[in-house]
């Protein structure tokens, strides 16, 4: 995305459009990546509820893939995931490994 010049920014940094957080991609902040293991997922949607951003896609009441553009790697989803029979459906993996 082309960054705006100083003549184009809104006076006083007022945000005049709703839902513009979608344009603010923070995935590059991440050092750990959550990985979804579908076989251990019971579709409880805890990860979707607890995610502080919008990094988990939800369609028709079901959890979909991670939207890594918005995932800062905080690990809350992996912590909250109850998994199935003691096996987590979300695990954190170090980026770059």
């Amino acid at each position: 995305m082309k960054l705006k010049g100083w003549k184009e920014v809104t006076p006083g940094a007022v945000v005049t459009k709703a839902g513009s957080a979608e344009e603010f991609k923070t995935g590059s902040w991440r050092s750990f990546r959550p990985v979804w293991l579908e076989e251990n997922c019971i579709q409880c949607m805890f990860c979707w509820i607890f995610c502080p951003d919008m990094a988990i896609e939800a369609k028709n009441g079901k959890r979909g893939v991670f939207k890594y553009d918005y995932c800062k790697g905080c690990g809350i989803c992996a912590l909250e995931c109850p998994g199935k029979k003691g096996k987590k459906a979300i695990v954190m993996e170090e980026e770059g490994k």
């Binding site: 006083g12 940094a13 007022v14």
Partner: peptide, 17 residues
């Protein structure tokens, strides 16, 4: 016309403001 005041402006935009 809903608006938000006081957003976080990081190094990529602070100087422009």
């Amino acid at each position: 016309h809903p608006v938000s005041y006081g957003p976080l402006i990081l190094p990529d935009y602070y100087m422009e403001f």
